[in-house]
Nucleic acid binder design. Structure first.
Lengths: 227, 227
DNA sequence: ACGACCATTTGATCAGGATCAAGGAACTTG
DNA sequence: CAAGTTCCTTGATCCTGATCAAATGGTCGT
C-alpha cells in the first residue's frame, strides 16, 4: 500500500475503496495532502489548481453566489466525499473550508484516466452523484416549501445524521458551520436562524453550548418540527 | 435495427445512442411504448410498474410532497431523458405527465444488466446525473435567494432554453405546465406567479396567448430580471 | 350558440420573515 | 487581564408574498 495512504482515514471509504492496488499506487504517486484553515477558499474549480480532491477530514461548503452578492450554499461535503465537478473544468460553484479541512488532492487528468479505465470507479462516482442528486432534491423541498422553523430543524437533522454519534433519541454533535452559513444554506437571514434556534432551545428540543455544540434532547420532537 | 426503434424520435439521443446494435436489440425486445395523458400519474418509482423509461415525447414533472400536502416540483424531464432512480426500487419522488407524454418503458433488471456490462452506458448515465445535479443546485439558488419576480423570470428562461426555437433576442415556446405547477416549482402560490407573469407582460418583456403560449420579446430584459 | 366548468387574473388584507438597530457573550491580541 | 473583535442574540418595524375572496375568460359538451 502506498505510504501516503498508510494511515489515511478514508483509505477504505470513498473512491479509494474501489481502486485496485496498482490503481491506488498510481493515484497516490500523484496525490498531495494539504491542510486548510476554516474559511479558506478552495480553488478547485476555477483558477490555477484545476483538479480534484478527497475530503479526508473536516467539512467543505459548496456555494453559488449571485452577481449582487446574494449567496446560497448548495451542499456540504464531509469525508470521504470527492470534490470537484467531473469532466468539466469550469463550474459556477465555489468551495470553502467550513471547518479546518484536510484534503488529498490530485490533478484532473490522473483521475479522469482512472475513471476511463475502471468500471468500478465509474460505478462509485455514479453512486455518489445519484446520492448527491437525491440530497439536492430533498433540499429543494426544504427551500421551497418549508417554514423558517422547519428549515432550521431540517438542517440540524441533516448534520446530526452525518455526525452519527449518539443514543436512540438523543444525539450530540458540532455544527460545522456558523449562523451566517446556516442562513445561506436555508435561504434565510442570520437573525431568523438565530431566533429559530433559540425557540428550539427554549422548548427543550435541543441544548446548546458555545454556539456550535448541539445536543438533541428529543430526536422525535426535532423530526416533528422538520415538517 | 429493431423495428420499434425504426422511427423513434430519440433513437440517436439519450441512452440508446451509446448502445451497440446487439444491446439495443436486447433492450428493444423488452421495451414497450406507452402513451399517457396530461395529468396522469406515472408510477415508475413505487408500486407495480417498477422500471425505467425513456421520455420520447412530452414533458414529465418530478415532485415531492410533504405529509401535509405541500408540494415541490424538483425537476422537469423532456425527451430523451431517462426516468427512474437507478439502483433503487423505492424513491420518494412521484412522477406525473405534465403534457401528453410518450414513454418507452423497460423492466428494472434489463437496464441494470446493460449498465453493468456497458461502460459507455454507465458513462452516459453519469453524465446525465451530473447534469441533473448541476440543474438541481442551480435551482436551489433560485428557490433560496431570489425574489418572486426573479423566480418567475428564471423559470421562463429555463423552459425557453429547453424549447429552443426562436431568433436572437426573441423566443417563442409553449409552457408545458400550468400556473399551479409553476408555483410548485418556484415555491410560490398560484396568485403570486400570475401577478408576476402579468407584470412581465405589461412591461413588454413577454407576450402571452392562451395562457400557455409565450413569446419572449426581449431575452436580454428577461435575463436581467432573472437575477 | 349557450351554459357549466376550470384555470387564470385581479383585488384586499394579513403574516412570516427581512431589515434596521442595539445589546451580550466568547475568542484574540497586546 | 483588559480591550477589541467577531459572532450571536434579542427587539422593533417594515415589506414581500400568502391568504381570502371575487371576477374574468377560455374550453368543452350539448
Amino acid at each position: 500500500m502506498p505510504s501516503v495512504c498508510q494511515d489515511c482515514r478514508v483509505r477504505h471509504e470513498g473512491i479509494c475503496a474501489v481502486l485496485s492496488p496498482s490503481e491506488l499506487r498510481h493515484l497516490a504517486r500523484n496525490a498531495r495532502h494539504t491542510h486548510h484553515d476554516a474559511g479558506e477558499g478552495l480553488a478547485l474549480e476555477s483558477g490555477e489548481i484545476n483538479g480534484y480532491a478527497n475530503v479526508t477530514n473536516g467539512a467543505v461548503k459548496l456555494s453559488r453566489v449571485l452577481r449582487d452578492g446574494r449567496q446560497q450554499l448548495v451542499g456540504l461535503q464531509f469525508a470521504p466525499d470527492l470534490m470537484g465537478r467531473l469532466f468539466r473544468a469550469e463550474s459556477p460553484l465555489s468551495a470553502e473550508a467550513a471547518s479546518d479541512v484536510e484534503l488529498c488532492r490530485f490533478p484532473r487528468g490522473v483521475l479522469e484516466a482512472l475513471v476511463a479505465s475502471s468500471s468500478n470507479l465509474k460505478q462509485r462516482l455514479l453512486d455518489q452523484s445519484l446520492h448527491d442528486l437525491d440530497e439536492a432534491r430533498e433540499w429543494m423541498v426544504t427551500l421551497g416549501r418549508k417554514s423558517a422553523a422547519e428549515k432550521v430543524a431540517s438542517l440540524l437533522l441533516l448534520v446530526a445524521k452525518r455526525s452519527g454519534g449518539g443514543s436512540d433519541d438523543s444525539i450530540t454533535f458540532d455544527m460545522p458551520i456558523g449562523r451566517a452559513d446556516m442562513a445561506d444554506f436555508l435561504g434565510l437571514t442570520i437573525e431568523t436562524v438565530s431566533r429559530q434556534v433559540s425557540k428550539l432551545r427554549h422548548s427543550g428540543v435541543i441544548a446548546i453550548s458555545g454556539h456550535r455544540h448541539v445536543k438533541v434532547l428529543s430526536l422525535r420532537a426535532l423530526k416533528d418540527r422538520a415538517g
